[in-house]
Amino acid sequence: MKTNETPNSVSRILPFASSHKRITLVLGHYGSGKTNISVNLALSLAKSGEKTAIADLDIVNPYFRTKDSLTVLREAGIRLISSEYANTNLDIPALPQDMYAVTDDRSLSCVLDIGGDDRGALVLGRLRPGIVAENDYEMLLVLNQYRPLTADAGSAIEVMREIEAAANMRFTGIVNNSNLGAETTAKIVLDSLSFAEEVSKKTSLPIRMTTVREDLMQELEGKVGSLFPLCLQKNFIESKI
């Protein structure tokens, strides 16, 4: 890997864009960073010239939705499949009416942002038959070791199994998104590697990528495999308050 690239360089984003399946499902523990990662994955697909869609299938949390990034997604030419009620004050767990575009339109590269925990994964019941029949997907487990209920490999795997049971699908890879919000440093990321590796070993799932805030990329280059830079979406930046 070259070391003189800027954090935004396309070549660094390509490892995902060049090796992805048609459908990428993003699931994980509540508050593990799924929405933010989904938006960034979709942006990297769009940047590499793919016809991209992102589906917000979160029925758990009425806040921090994919729709928060509507402007960015629109500018990148990404189709947003989202409930009409997302980001309205109507607090109901509604699914988007055009959600079947994910399985019906095979010209699309899709990123599916699924709600947290096993409760969130239930929505896959309706899409699963089409996704499995086509068999061109990967299902990613987002992990953050610094979240309270997934602090060790055992509890992370417990959450993982609950999600798999609810989704009736098996994960294919791990996204290590271990971070402490604004207090994340390179050391915080490095300290989480053994945790991610332990989960990987015990589940036989590969670590698909380690996601880090863009400004930490340079420091971590060469120390962590499959780094993927995250540009934090507006609603995830709290420093202004």
Binding site: N144, Y146, R147, P148, N179, D191
Partner: peptide, 16 residues
């Protein structure tokens, strides 16, 4: 494992 955990305010209330 760091000394801190990343929590939502609601979760912090429950854990505390």
């Amino acid at each position: 494992m760091a000394d801190k955990v990343l929590m939502k305010g609601n979760e912090a209330i429950a854990e505390a």
